[in-house]
């Protein structure tokens, strides 16, 4: 910045470090708790540093699973399937519908737009009961389809791609038309590559959205083999009336956190760029 006053810069760093410490504290404690045995976690004062039981806990959680619940591997797999189906499904249908709405003049265009738009930001939580009934009537309970498709019916991605497409210069379409590209060729050869930042950002958002779903899978799955890892936490905390088995719970929480965290951090640049440039 302008003046290079070491003091004010140092203060800024201090504030930031304090902020980071507060924000990351719960996550650090998760790792700590996952590295101690259950007895240590009931002793006051509680540990703030790492213990030596991390891999033991990991082994227990992964191999035998937490008593009475689905094996971790299956839950992670279910979460992954759900996250990917939601992310790819939503991106695909949203790219197509945004393309139609921005680049074609057709009857009922505005009607369609408003129909999609009404679902914008309307989470399943709000219409949970009737949606559940519809899915039940369609026989999609306890299926991946039932788990994902109703969540695909929201307009965030369509809306974001619409914004992206509107910012693509008209001349690109004109040049492509002169170059003999038809509508689908323009879509695949030009529009999608040009929008890749938004698509990447949307992938991150939707992957996390899908991975982190809670209420919907809770309602729609009764079969143990369909449980996702995020859902399992609650069950584990209530498994017994006594004090929860924190070392296993925190290890599971850690496993549930790692994939979305990796996706966000790994795609950070694209994600931040796409998110803040198009959504604003």
């Amino acid at each position: 910045m302008i003046e290079n006053r070491p003091v004010s810069t140092a203060v800024s760093h201090l504030v930031l470090l304090a902020g980071v410490a507060i924000v990351l504290f719960p996550i650090w404690i998760t790792i700590v708790a996952a590295s101690h045995d259950v007895a240590r976690l009931l002793e006051v004062p509680l540990p703030l540093g790492l213990g030596d039981q991390f891999f033991e806990n990991l082994k227990q959680v992964v191999s035998t699973g937490v008593e009475g619940s689905t094996p971790i591997g299956i839950m992670l797999f279910n979460s992954l399937v759900m996250a990917l189906m939601i992310a790819f499904g939503k991106i695909t249908i949203s790219l197509l519908s945004a393309y139609a709405i921005v680049y074609f003049d057709f009857r009922f265009r505005m009607l369609f737009f408003w129909m999609i738009f009404l679902t914008l930001m309307l989470p399943v939580e709000v219409r949970i009961l009737p949606t559940y009934e519809v899915v039940a009537q369609l026989g999609m309970l306890d299926t991946y389809w039932g788990l994902t498709i109703p969540l695909i019916a929201s307009a965030t991605a369509t809306f974001m791609f619409r914004q992206t497409f509107l910012s693509v210069p008209d001349e690109l379409l004109e040049a492509a038309r002169i170059d003999g590209a038809g509508p689908m060729q323009f879509f695949f050869d030009i529009l999608i590559p040009v929008s890749r930042t938004s698509i990447a950002a949307m992938f991150v958002i939707l992957f996390i959205y899908g991975w982190n779903q809670y209420l919907w899978p809770l309602l729609i799955t009764t079969d143990k083999s369909m449980v996702t890892i995020v859902m399992s936490i609650k069950g584990m905390m209530e498994a017994l009336e006594e004090t929860p088995k924190w070392h296993h719970i925190m290890m599971t929480a850690l496993l549930a956190m790692i994939p979305p965290v990796l996706v966000v951090i790994g795609m950070q640049k694209l994600f931040v760029k796409g998110l803040t440039e198009t959504e604003k």
Partner: peptide
């Protein structure tokens, strides 16, 4: 503005 395809 030339309208070159930016990704090609």
């Amino acid at each position: 503005n030339y309208a070159l395809y930016p990704h090609m």
